[in-house]
């Protein structure tokens, strides 16, 4: 991302601990920092238990962060002084949830589900305008106008996820957190929903935080990617750089495990084993994200810096030696 671009979201030293003070305290998110720029898709990948969902939920205030700062559009939104402040925040930041089965109230009509935000924020003058807005939203996400009066159970998984997207769009946010929006859907439907999200982003100039475990899908939709493991960001960089020239051993291992729909490739696949003990912090060698190549960061200590620089240099050398096909 170019330097002059506007930062929409700045996450600074975010910590989210559960069960603080108890012996079984969990550091779900342990001091992560990253920025998201205007109009980009930032992909957050990690395995189950890595803290990716918790991070998303902390950012949008479904949890109260244990520590750290979240700055959204230049304002500190780590805590709110008044209800008005919180309303203004949720108007601009919305969320799409993983499970379209569980995230839609089965007793509400699609119209009421989508218009809930419109009501809360008073965005429609009267019933007719409310209805019009809902119908327009339904069309935007590829459903029919007359679906408004139906109930969630009358829809398939893919359609329900479209309703979830329409609900998020209803208050015209600038920023959307999508937490595994497609993992509950069938393959042929996944592509539909992801393409819809991509189109909406272009049309409306949205910024996304896209959380997922499916690396190839994250790579497809994201401009930049952060790799999360044990609640820590291990690597951040432009999507292509992270995938083609992964710096951290964990990222390398993760990418080497993604199955590709290509039998020839699978027959010659080399998996990279990963030893998580390298993530153990050493006394007196504090680790943080350090920039190795422009925009490409890896979590390391001062002492490890040269190792990663060498790794990046090797990638560069390899690339020069093998002409692109």
């Amino acid at each position: 991302m170019p330097e002059n671009q506007k930062k929409v979201l700045e996450v600074k030293h975010l910590k989210q601990y559960f069960g603080v003070g108890k012996p079984d305290m969990v550091k779900a998110v342990d001091d992560i920092s990253f920025d998201i720029y205007d109009g980009e898709v930032f992909g957050l990948v990690g395995e189950s238990g890595s803290g990716k969902t918790t991070a998303g939920r902390s950012i949008i205030h479904l949890y109260n962060p244990t520590d750290g700062q979240i700055i959204f559009n230049g304002k500190d939104v780590s805590s709110f002084k008044s209800k008005k402040e919180k309303l203004e925040f949720t108007r601009n930041m919305q969320m799409i949830f993983q499970d379209p089965q569980a995230s839609l109230n089965p007793r509400m009509t699609v119209e009421d589900i989508i218009a809930e935000g419109i009501d809360i924020h008073g965005l429609a003058k009267d019933k007719a305008e409310r209805r019009k807005k809902v119908e327009d939203l339904l069309e935007t996400v590829g459903l029919n106008r007359d679906h408004a009066s139906r109930y969630p159970h009358e829809f398939s998984g893919g359609q329900r996820q479209r309703i979830g997207i329409a609900r998020a769009l209803a208050v015209e946010p600038s920023f959307i957190i999508a937490d595994e929006p497609i993992s509950a859907l069938d393959v042929s439907i996944q592509a539909q929903v992801v393409n819809l999200m991509k189109d909406l982003q272009k049309e409306r100039g949205l910024t996304y935080l896209f959380i997922a475990h499916d690396l190839s899908m994250v790579k497809y939709i994201s401009d930049r990617i952060g790799v999360l493991h044990y609640g820590r960001l291990l690597e951040v960089g432009p999507a292509d750089d992270v995938y083609l020239t992964p710096l951290h051993d964990y990222t390398k291992s993760l990418i080497s495990a993604v199955p590709e729909p290509d039998p020839e490739f699978e027959r010659t696949r080399q998996r990279v084993p990963y030893d998580a003990s390298i993530e153990q912090d050493k006394e007196g060698q504090p680790r943080k994200l350090r920039e190795i190549t422009p925009g490409h960061f890896v979590r390391c200590s001062e002492e490890e810096l040269s190792f990663y620089q060498e790794r990046a240099a090797n990638y560069k050398k390899e690339k020069q030696e093998t002409p692109s096909v």
């Binding site: 393959v187 042929s188 393409n195």
Partner: peptide, 18 residues
């Protein structure tokens, strides 16, 4: 095959409909 992203894909062709 078209709607599966690979690490190299730049364009996904979704199957329309259900």
């Amino acid at each position: 095959l078209n709607s599966m992203p690979t690490l190299n894909s730049t364009d996904l062709q979704a199957i329309p409909g259900t």
